[in-house]
């Protein structure tokens, strides 16, 4: 469990990126922080592994105040996946994946062996192991980034817009892959995005942020869609434009679902079990 307690971050230039933020992120669940650019998402994420230290307030991981932990050691036990993969361009794919175990003192041979298995886990061909990152497609790079984030088998995985820079089809694939992985691994995932659909797709808990890291609403996707807490939220999730208000329309062949503007959103195939 990760807990933010009244966390504020004021940068030296006076920017208040996060203002009095409190939140509990349950273990083994995916919490998605979603908000527009500049709302403090990256800053919040980086305070978990102490790449940024809060100006006031505290962050606890499983009841331990992170300010008492040594930052470098802390980072080695938290996975981090960033946009544009953040791979080290001078290391081959396999060595990129093996980086954190090697930093942790695992012998290189063993770490590379284990890295090969991780390539399988994230659905990458082992033949790519000897390439440099620049020789991979954007989607492949992101997969390597995920494999590297998982390499030290961390309990916590931080993901900063990891699929933001790939094309929609590849993004779909990567999202499905992450859902599958998370079902198997059950990490405590903190996922940052500006895409509300991605947030609803991946999040067990979704946190909608306004500027300054102010929480507009926290809840499951269902809760937020059923009852947007404010006009801001309604507009952010598209409810005000009727995007979330679907109705059934009968056609010659059956039933389709249409949104508030009458555009087709899907077909009706039955009723899903709640939850």
């Amino acid at each position: 469990m990760i807990e933010f307690r009244s966390v504020t971050k004021r940068f030296p230039d006076g920017t208040v990126a996060v203002d009095d933020f409190s939140l509990v992120l349950p273990s083994h669940k995916t919490t998605v922080l979603v908000g527009s650019s500049g709302s403090g998402k990256t800053t919040l994420l980086r305070m978990v592994n102490r790449m940024v230290d809060p100006s006031s307030g505290s962050i606890e991981i499983d009841g331990e105040d992170t300010s008492t932990l040594e930052p470098v050691a802390l980072r080695r036990r938290i996975g981090y996946v960033m946009q544009n993969s953040g791979l080290l361009p001078h290391l081959k794919v396999l060595d990129n994946v093996a980086t954190v175990p090697v930093l942790n003192g695992v012998p290189r041979r063993e770490a590379r062996q284990q890295a090969l298995t991780l390539l399988d886990t994230v659905g990458l061909d082992r033949a790519l192991a000897d390439r440099y990152p620049s020789q991979l497609s954007g989607g492949q790079q992101q997969r390597v980034g995920v494999a590297r984030g998982l390499a030290a088998d961390p309990n916590i995985l931080l993901m900063d817009e990891p699929f933001g820079a790939v094309d929609p089809i590849v993004r779909d694939e990567l999202q499905q892959e992450l859902i599958r992985l998370q079902r198997e691994l059950g990490k405590t995932v903190v996922f940052v995005t500006h895409d509300i659909d991605e947030a609803f797709l991946l999040g067990d808990q979704v946190v909608i942020l306004e500027q300054g890291g102010r929480i507009a609403q926290v809840g499951s996707p269902t809760e937020i869609m059923e009852a947007p807490a404010s006009d801001f939220v309604a507009s952010f999730i598209g409810a005000d434009r009727g995007k979330r208000a679907l109705s059934i329309r009968k056609t010659e062949h059956g039933f389709i679902l249409v949104d508030g503007e009458g555009r087709a959103a899907g077909v009706l195939v039955g009723t899903a079990d709640a939850g």
Partner: peptide, 10 residues
């Protein structure tokens, strides 16, 4: 970004 990423990895 690469520098940040090295830091993030520990």
């Amino acid at each position: 970004a690469v520098r940040d990423c090295a830091t993030a990895m520990g």
